[in-house]
Design a protein around this nucleic acid. Structure first.
Lengths: 202, 202
DNA sequence: GGTCTAAGTAATCAAACGATAACAAGTTGG
DNA sequence: CCAACTTGTTATCGTTTGATTACTTAGACC
């Protein structure tokens, strides 16, 4: 039973961002179809009809979630690109920028859920466009060649998959999981485990 | 309007396999939550209650679908492993075996949909176990080292993603898509495009 | 301090879905 | 040939869900 009475008022813009963050987490966990507008509302601390009225439809909300996720991702890449202070190689800096997106829950996973819905007319089109936007950034702005991009994206998709699988769940019980995770998230295994713990308990 | 009258009888075993094939395609396209038992029934040419009664629940059906998909995948890998006649390197043979699973629609994609539902208690557990079964096959039976397995799985997850995105849809209109596809499916681009066409038209 | 707008809720609905129950028609074995 | 089991269907039900409508109330502004 949720006590829903007083609720401090916000301007629509703030509330919108708050709901988008909540929705990112929910869609990341349950997927586009599996997530309900009531789940999102609960996570955001507002009523279900308010979520729908603010975004029009669940589909529109999901589109805004994945567009926001793409903006965050590309902004992270741009920062890694701009930061020439460190002597770390570009490809590695970009990889770290990618993994750091895990700190906000659902950013990478809601994208991943969109990526497997290519046959959905509206979402599919948006997902392809978003994916290729990342491709072009890596290819043109970051200056990767085609093979580098392919390799980078492949590693990213494996990371998404392992996060989607909640693989950290089995880290302690299965040495093969440990081996794989240490290979897939170099230097970031502890962060990933910590975040998984927080999500499970909290 | 479906004409549903005469329907030649089958033994339950055959009908089961037929439904599992149909369900593989439907789950691959729409995902676990998005696919309905009525969709599966329509694709299999039987009534919706029959699907439910044969498999108990939709969840159970999905579990059988992904277990079957895993069996097909591992059988394909085993064949590639056994076929020592060709002079093609093992890693490449395994890659071809992977891509050839695309010939049956939904085998790789239904697995992919399972892989992003790690938080679902039952499906998540099965998905992790299945993924690690593949990992162990590559690591132990195929003799890959950890980095090789990571690289192989990463390429596989990128392939899954691009198929899930229905990326072939944009092959003609976007030269970057063409570049990426030629990098991700070496020598198999035409097959992928052909299968995508069949799925779109048929 | 009253008023008017923007921020929110409660109540409710129609559609879709998974599941169940009850029934029909082949097929097989004695 | 008929009884019994298997293969299948039609009809229907209770929930869940996204969406709509109508109502409330906080707070900014004159």
């Amino acid at each position: 039973m949720t006590i829903s009475v007083p609720l401090t008022r916000m301007k629509a813009g703030e509330r919108r961002e708050l709901i988008l963050r909540a929705a990112t987490g929910v869609f990341g966990t349950s997927g586009y179809v599996g997530a309900t507008t009531a789940d999102v509302a609960r996570a955001a601390g507002v009523s279900q009809p308010y979520v729908v009225r603010m975004f029009g439809t669940k589909e529109q909300l999901f589109l805004e979630v994945i567009n926001r996720a793409l903006e965050l991702l590309l902004a992270g890449f741009q920062s890694a690109l701009d930061d020439t202070s460190s002597d770390v190689a570009l490809e590695k800096r970009m990889g770290l920028a990618y993994v750091n997106q895990l700190k906000e829950h659902g950013v990478l996973l809601s994208l991943m859920h969109a990526f497997v819905l290519g046959r959905e007319p509206v979402i599919g089109r948006a997902a392809r466009a978003g994916f290729m936007k990342v491709y072009r950034f890596l290819r043109e702005d970051a200056g990767f060649d085609a093979a580098q991009v392919q390799n980078f994206l492949a590693s990213g998709m494996l990371i998404n998959t392992m996060i989607g699988l909640d693989m950290a769940e089995d880290y302690d019980g299965d040495p093969d999981v440990r081996e794989l995770m240490e290979c897939a998230f170099p230097e970031k295994v502890e962060m990933v485990r910590e975040l998984a713990r927080k999500r499970t308990e909290g």
